Computed example of a mutant assay.
Amino acid sequence: MTETPEARLKRMTMRSWRRGIKEMDLIFGRWSEAHLAGLDAEKLELYEALLAEADQDIYPWITAAMPVPQRYAALIDEIRVFARANVSAG
């Protein structure tokens, strides 16, 4: 059975909110709710691949403590900007 686009977005949003590290839940959860529905197919694929990465790898990319793999650089930059403007504000 093929996953519907709506089910995919719901699954990805759920995965964004249930990362395992609270900081990542807040960053990815809020970003996904604000942006997932508007992403094109290519960016959805990229975000889904990012969701498969370990939080222990992603968090240092988001905080700029470690270099971001080129594949994810633009997306991480976008998420980082959103997090600075929205997550710390509560």
Rank of each mutant, 00 (worst) to 15 (best):
M1Q: 08
T2N: 13
T2I: 14
T2W: 13
E3G: 06
E3C: 13
P5V: 01
P5G: 07
E6F: 13
E6W: 11
E6H: 08
E6D: 08
A7W: 10
R8G: 02
L9M: 12
L9S: 11
L9C: 00
K10Y: 10
R11Y: 12
R11V: 09
R11F: 10
R11I: 08
R11P: 13
M12S: 10
M12A: 13
M12H: 14
M12F: 11
M12P: 01
T13W: 05
M14Q: 15
R15K: 09
R15Y: 04
S16C: 04
S16Q: 03
W17G: 02
R18I: 03
R19F: 00
G20T: 09
K22D: 07
E23Y: 01
E23G: 02
E23M: 04
M24S: 02
D25Q: 03
I27N: 00
F28M: 08
F28P: 02
F28W: 01
G29E: 00
G29M: 00
W31V: 04
S32H: 02
S32G: 07
E33S: 01
E33A: 03
A34I: 06
A34Y: 00
H35K: 11
H35P: 00
H35G: 03
H35T: 06
L36S: 05
A37E: 12
A37Y: 05
G38P: 03
L39A: 11
L39N: 08
D40Q: 04
A41L: 11
A41E: 15
E42G: 14
E42N: 14
K43V: 11
L44R: 12
E45A: 13
E45F: 10
L46N: 09
Y47P: 05
Y47M: 06
Y47N: 05
Y47I: 08
A49H: 08
A49W: 09
A49L: 10
A49N: 11
L50H: 07
L50M: 13
L50E: 03
A52C: 06
A52D: 15
A52T: 05
A52P: 00
E53W: 03
A54L: 13
A54K: 15
D55V: 04
Q56Y: 14
Q56T: 14
Q56V: 14
Q56H: 07
D57C: 10
I58F: 03
Y59C: 00
I62T: 07
A64K: 15
A65V: 11
A65Q: 15
A65P: 02
P67N: 10
P67I: 02
P67K: 10
P69H: 07
Q70V: 15
Q70A: 15
Y72V: 04
Y72P: 02
Y72Q: 02
A73N: 03
A74L: 07
A74H: 06
A74W: 01
L75A: 09
L75D: 10
I76P: 08
I76Y: 07
I76M: 10
D77H: 12
E78L: 09
E78G: 09
I79N: 09
I79T: 12
I79C: 06
R80D: 10
R80H: 08
R80A: 07
V81K: 10
F82A: 04
F82H: 11
F82I: 05
A83T: 02
A83C: 06
A83F: 02
R84A: 06
A85E: 13
A85Y: 01
A85M: 12
A85C: 07
A85D: 12
N86A: 09
V87D: 04
V87G: 01
A89L: 15
A89M: 13
A89R: 15
A89V: 13
G90I: 07
G90E: 10
